[in-house]
Design a binder for these strands. Structure first.
Length: 628
RNA sequence: GGACCGGUAGCUCAGUUGGAUAGAGCAGCUGCCUUCUAAGCAGCAGGCCAUUGGUUCGAAUCCAAUCCGGUUCACCA
């Protein structure tokens, strides 16, 4: 994935070419006076400039490959020389030596030394540039965030059905959508978070019919069951009762298909859908009442997990959209009509098939509604990009949706982006409502906070906390574990959740990072950084240096994570920062540092690490506690 | 059958615009709390990167074929 629009304001003068690669003005002289220049782009620019000036060999900046130096070699960053030495017909050794010397000469405050091994130029960063960076940014809580771009991005996520409660798969969707929005915000975009409530249709009618027939007037209030679960129970009941009816019919020798189609319950649900569409007041009243129960239940869960929306669309209000677009498409010959009156689009030239956009009875299909909604979103908010966080089962649907919008030449078309993610599966395979293998969202949250509570109490580190403080901490840790678990994996990959093993609280987890933050805060509570003479610092120890270099990359990671819409990059980054910090913590004392100057340096490192952990976890919707 | 996605340690995952001897966490094994929080740290062990061929200085990464798993191709949503 590449950056699809806009400029990266971190890099002055950068512009965008078609491929989305960042291009630097080639006539810029090599000047790295500002500590704001990021290290890796700075090195690339330096190499590019030197190749052009010394070897008359102009290249694109992205042709310079800069890696982190492997731990077994001396150095921090490594320039790979093979491609240049080949075209320049100079041995890698010779070129590396010449480049290394030129880099040192052009910016002595950046590079302390270099070595060339095989085709690799290993650069040892100078302490000076890192110390300058640290001193400038250590107390900047929003470091890594970007300035406003005045461009708008819409993110649609969550999009629940109002006939059953949320499950683990919905949580992945919610966390992903919320985080992607947060990433765009961090990169300077205006964000509109939306959700479409699938609040009508045959599935909704099923739970309504079941309630009517079997509830005997029971309500969430009368039973004490959370509204979404209450309605969901009747949806399940519909299924079991329907199965009974079908089996009875089968026993009487009715063919299977007919038995399913003509079961009284199914008939009743279909009739209810017809009545709903006709606006039958009694049906509408029942529908409103039951949806109200579900929304009340959802509100509790959404609030707990921190999902929020700027605009909620309801399918009951959008399902008729798109009909005028069908007419337009017919007029423009984008669509064609078949003999029975149904309207289609031919996508064979695009490697796809024919797709229906309007039924023969004149009603809109899902696709048409979605086109209509896309137009409505665009008219209301004019987003440059409109992201749909929807599972990868619907890849084909969104491919077709975008294609049709393009063919209709709708202004919304170019912005449509399907953020496709893999399903959460159990070791036994997909979660199935009918087989009762669904991991309920509320249950798993309770389980996680419960484990957090148990663990915390065993450790006894917060015995002086009030009941409220404890509850908040358990929520922070439990939800942190859950969110991190779901976000640390590349969104597009399927993931496996094993209920037997539950979710870890050690190692590559949310609580590990939260714990690291609490540790740092414990140091800083005793003693915040004071003033000191920066120039008195003479050297960074290996772990100090490693940590500062890692922290310097934060802004680039945020940008990349946003560009690729991949929160797992942030999760991995936060973990690596916490990992390095914990090694540093075990190796070096802050409060009893060798000298006062060292202590001040380390306190600054602590402050900055805490900021970055809080900020990066914040992008994932995860809080970090002061104590745990 | 067509299209798309995936296959990396026992398990869960990083690493894929081609770069040095493929990395974490969990599980297993050794050590480390009289010193800023042991939800931690240090270490050991664990791999024909699905298979085969190709491209080249160099392939987990790119290409082709094959095998395995998944999704999708409805007048369902």
């Amino acid at each position: 994935m590449i950056s699809f629009f806009g400029i990266n304001p971190l890099i002055p003068g950068a512009k965008l070419i078609k491929t989305g690669q960042i291009v630097y003005p080639t006539n810029t002289t090599f000047a790295l006076n500002s500590t704001r220049m990021e290290l890796v782009p700075g090195i690339k620019l330096a190499v590019q400039t030197l190749l052009a000036e010394k070897y008359n060999h102009p290249i694109e900046i992205h042709e310079v490959l800069v890696n982190e130096t492997k731990p077994e070699f001396e150095g921090d960053y490594t320039v790979v020389l093979f491609s240049f030495s080949k075209t320049l017909k100079i041995s890698p050794d010779q070129l590396g030596k010449a480049l290394g010397e030129a880099l040192m000469a052009s910016k002595p405050s950046w590079f302390a030394s270099f070595n060339v091994i095989k085709g690799f130029l290993n650069l040892v960063m100078a302490d000076r540039v890192l110390l300058d960076f640290l001193e400038t940014h250590y107390d900047q809580a929003d470091w890594g965030m970007q300035a406003d771009r005045h461009q708008r991005v819409m993110v649609e996520y969550s999009s629940p059905n109002t006939n059953k409660p949320l499950h683990l798969g919905h949580l992945r969707n919610n966390f992903l959508g919320w985080t992607v929005a947060a990433l765009y915000k961090a990169c300077g975009y205006d964000i509109v978070k939306t959700c479409i409530a699938n609040d009508r249709g045959i599935h909704i009618c099923k739970s309504m019919v079941a309630w009517q027939l079997f509830a005997g007037g029971a309500t969430p209030e009368s039973t004490g069951i959370k509204g979404d679960h209450f309605v969901g129970d009747f949806y399940v009941l519909f299924g079991t009762e329907l199965k009974k009816q079908v089996e009875e019919a089968l026993a009487l020798g009715v063919p299977k298909e007919k038995a399913e189609k003509e079961a009284p319950l199914m008939k009743a649900a279909q009739q209810m859908l017809v009545d709903w569409e006709a606006g039958d007041p009694q049906v509408l009243e029942l529908w409103k009442m039951m949806n109200g129960w579900v929304y009340a239940g959802f509100d509790v869960t959404y609030k707990r997990i921190g999902s929020d929306f700027d605009k909620i669309y309801y399918e009951s209000q959008t399902y008729l959209l798109g009909k005028d677009l069908v007419e337009m498409g017919l007029k423009n010959k984008v669509f064609f009509q078949k003999g029975d009156g149904s309207v289609w689009i031919d996508l064979k030239d695009d490697g796809l098939d024919e797709k229906i956009v309007q039924r023969s009875d004149g009603t809109a299909v899902y696709m048409t509604q979605d086109i209509g909604l896309a137009v409505e979103k665009y008219d209301e908010y004019h987003p440059q990009r409109s992201i749909y966080v929807v599972a990868d089962e619907q890849n084909y649907h969104f491919k077709v949706l975008k294609l049709i919008c393009e063919k209709l030449q709708l202004p919304t078309a170019s912005g449509i982006y399907h953020l496709s993610y893999g399903l959460v599966e159990l070791p036994t395979g997909r979660m199935k409502t009918r087989e009762g293998t669904v991991v309920d969202a509320d249950d798993i949250i309770d389980e996680m906070t419960g484990i957090a509570a148990k663990h915390t109490e065993e450790l006894g580190k917060v015995d002086d906390f009030t009941a409220e403080e404890r509850k908040e901490l358990y929520d922070t840790i439990g939800l942190g574990a859950l969110k991190f678990f779901l976000l640390r994996v590349d969104p597009k990959k399927r993931m496996v959740f094993n209920p037997e093993e539950s979710i870890e609280f050690h190692g590559f987890t949310g609580p590990f990072i939260q714990y690291t933050h609490a540790r740092i805060k414990s140091i800083l509570r005793r003693e915040p950084p004071g003033s000191y003479a920066e120039e008195m610092i003479t050297g960074l120890l290996p772990l100090e240096k490693e940590l500062v270099i890692a922290m310097e990359k934060y802004g680039a990671i945020v940008q990349q994570s946003c560009t690729e819409m991949n929160p797992s990059l942030i999760a991995n980054y936060a973990f690596s920062i916490a990992q390095i910090f914990n090694s540093f913590y075990a190796e070096h004392s802050v409060s009893r540092a060798e000298t006062e100057i060292k202590k001040q340096l380390r306190l600054r490192i602590c402050v900055m690490t805490a900021h970055i952990l809080k900020s990066s976890m914040g992008l994932l919707g995860i809080k970090v506690p002061e104590r745990m």
